[in-house]
């Protein structure tokens, strides 16, 4: 029952945030230069008059603002973002087409960064002041200070230009193998550099967080009790301590999903990766505000979903969840 109320509360909150993002989007369309109709048409100034008139009636742009907002929210509720002028088809179609590419690199980088970060952070916490601790701190500080785009370019320079080991552009080789193992290998080779770039940055974050959280947990009384009881070292570390230390890391992971998607814009731009980030980049170049705002809305939606998953994980990891709420 408590768990049910907790989940319900989180769902309501998530819906409110989505609603707020939608309203923010609506306001941004009004702030954008030019007639809102041309913004929604996704073309700066050269839309034809009949199309604009149709958009005005579709979106009720001659109605008072609250009515307009109502119509806009109705359209968003069914994920109707209007048309893309460049591609001459609905923005929503393009987004669905691009979404898997973005999820492919962000999810892979996320899993790798989390695994490596937690491992590095744990090693550092256990050997406080030791070699691993110094390595972990140095790696964290360095990659935390490195512009993502610069890491990407350096990796291209080393692994693609100098060594010629890995492709630096696109998701597959043009005219390359189309099926079977060679095709899979081709896909994987294209995945390496973009994912590595994104991973290095987030690894730094998770390593630092894990170290801090583990140091704190290892000093707690229940760890001393476990030691006194003669529980094995590994069991203490990975069962007793990590389970408690993992909560702040899970929270951070949820919060960072937005940054991961933001990072995808840079990564996809550098590596010509055909996802939402590259779509956003091209929308910026072409001043296609409508597509840009749609990508903003969808990425925000993904963050909200990720946070719901984090809330669910909390319930699994920590049975006390919801007791205080």
């Amino acid at each position: 029952m408590r768990a049910f109320r907790y989940v319900l509360g989180r769902l309501v909150k998530a819906c409110l945030i989505v609603l707020a993002v939608a309203i923010l989007n609506f306001l941004l369309i009004r702030v954008a230069p030019g007639d809102p109709a041309t913004v929604i048409a996704g073309q700066s100034g050269d839309a034809d008059a009949t199309y604009l008139a149709q958009l005005r009636s579709d979106f009720g742009l001659d109605e008072p603002l609250p009515v307009q907002l109502g119509i806009y929210l109705q359209k968003l509720a069914v994920l109707d973002f209007g048309m893309s002028y460049r591609e001459r088809r609905p923005v929503a179609d393009i987004i669905w087409e691009r979404l898997p590419s973005t999820l492919e690199i962000t999810a892979t980088a996320f899993v790798l960064a989390l695994a490596a970060g937690v491992l590095l952070g744990t090693l550092a916490a256990v050997n406080r002041g030791g070699v691993w601790d110094r390595v972990s701190t140095a790696v964290s500080l360095i990659f935390y200070a490195t512009p993502l785009f610069w890491v990407g370019l350096l990796l291209v320079l080393v692994f693609s230009v100098e060594l010629n080991w890995l492709p630096a552009f696109g998701r597959t080789m043009i005219g390359g193998p189309e099926s079977g193992f060679p095709a899979l290998l081709d896909r994987l080779r294209h995945l390496v550099l973009p994912v590595l770039t994104l991973t290095l940055f987030y690894l730094a974050l998770y390593a630092r967080m894990t170290r801090a959280s583990m140091v704190e947990t290892l000093d707690m009384d229940f760890i001393k009790t476990a030691r006194a009881k003669g529980v094995g070292r590994r069991r203490i570390l990975f069962v007793h301590a990590l389970r408690n230390a993992v909560l702040p890391i899970v929270t951070l992971a949820g919060v960072q999903v937005g940054q991961l998607l933001s990072g995808a814009i840079i990564i996809e731009t550098i590596f010509g990766w055909p996802g939402l980030g590259l779509l956003a980049f091209n929308a910026v170049l072409q001043r296609d505000y409508n597509t840009l705002l749609a990508v903003f809305f969808v990425t925000s939606l993904l963050v909200v979903v990720a946070n719901l998953i984090v809330d669910g994980l909390y319930l699994l990891i920590d049975p006390r969840t919801g007791a205080r709420a």
Partner: peptide, 18 residues
């Protein structure tokens, strides 16, 4: 919370573009 949830860089790009 709203401003912490939305992807920062994405929102910043939208704002600068607009």
């Amino acid at each position: 919370e709203l401003f912490q949830t939305v992807p920062h860089f994405m929102l910043a790009l939208v704002l600068v573009a607009i």
